[in-house]
Design a protein around this nucleic acid. Structure first.
Lengths: 181, 181
DNA sequence: TTTCTATTGTAGCGAACGCTACATTAATGT
DNA sequence: ACATTAATGTAGCGTTCGCTACAATAGAAA
């Protein structure tokens, strides 16, 4: 499966830049992701960003992709391996997702969702891809009686977790905790 | 309770402008809420917007306030009067909130939440106020056995509805419906 | 009518935006 | 050594941003 070319030097440098861009976007949000600040964060110039990438959209897409990868790996390594019933899985995932260390990811996630909701041609597909990935991942973690129940529980898991994220973003963390009780 | 002054002509004109600004923000989002487009939508000039309002923040705050009022009235008039148990209330409210006519409100709501999540000093308090209002409104609609259960159910109602909104914004409407089944 | 205040237009400031043209330096293959 | 290409700096384009200075008009008060 030679879908990946052997990484040449340009690819390596691109990857290194994306790593720093991901840091910057996680710290300051998509709202602060304009070329000159991004370039400074990556230790280079806006001119060079547009040398390694064809335009800003490509930069943002690559950065969000990288952020999604990091998010997935953090999530996977902090959750149990064996399947759980819906209620317990909600408790476990919420404790990860609402954690302060994870919160930057959720802030970017909300920015992404708000743009996707407006039908943005760049952010929309990316958001849907990540959301679908999370849905599938959750489905695999669920201990549900049958396939239909598992599909329904996975949907409920996604809705509930995302709802908690949004409500926390409103500054209503106590409400999230009350919903868990 | 004379907290409201009698509206002078300036207040009337401000209100008329805000009405049109609300239309524009609902149609095109906070992302398109810059002074010159807003002014054009209101049939005036950026110069005049800053004559009636002290700065852009005040314009946006007034506009969002008005949008929240409209949202609340639409929501109230389309939901039943008598209290319902949590499950039925979720079904009923979700059918209103996910409706196409209501969707512009939810798009703005998501933009607001994403800014609030980053601790924005303007959007944060507004988002919390609206969110708290919705929580209280839901609590009043709930038929729950006791006060503690009602508080918990109201929190779950808010989390679930907001989760559905976010997931729909991702372009995963079928997932929302599956979660209802 | 005259004077004063309320309202509005015109023009522009300085900053940031995405992006590009052009020139230069550094590396590489022959 | 030399020719060619890759990598990078400098400067600037045209646009939009929030906001303001200044002048002109309009309407009410005297």
């Amino acid at each position: 499966m030679a879908t990946h070319r052997t990484p040449n030097k340009t690819d390596e440098r691109r990857a290194a830049i994306v790593e720093r861009l991901a840091d910057h976007v996680l710290a300051h949000g998509l709202v602060a992701a304009s070329l000159r600040p991004l370039a400074k964060a990556a230790g280079t110039s806006d001119r060079m960003l547009l040398y390694y990438f064809s335009d800003k959209d490509e930069i943002i897409a690559a950065t969000l992709q990288r952020i999604a990868e990091r998010m997935e790996s953090v999530l996977s390594e902090r959750t149990a391996r064996e399947p759980l019933p819906l209620g317990e899985l909600i408790t476990q995932i919420s404790s990860v997702v609402l954690n302060d260390q994870f919160w930057p990811y959720m802030c970017v996630w909300l920015e992404l969702a708000s743009r996707a909701g407006r039908g943005d041609p760049l952010y929309g597909p990316i958001a849907m891809q990540i959301g679908s990935g999370f849905l599938a991942w959750g489905e695999a973690q669920l201990a549900s009686p049958d396939a239909a129940a598992r599909a329904r529980d996975a949907a409920r898991l996604l809705v509930t977790i995302e709802g908690m994220v949004l409500v926390k973003a409103l500054g209503m963390g106590e409400t999230v905790e009350r919903s868990l009780g």
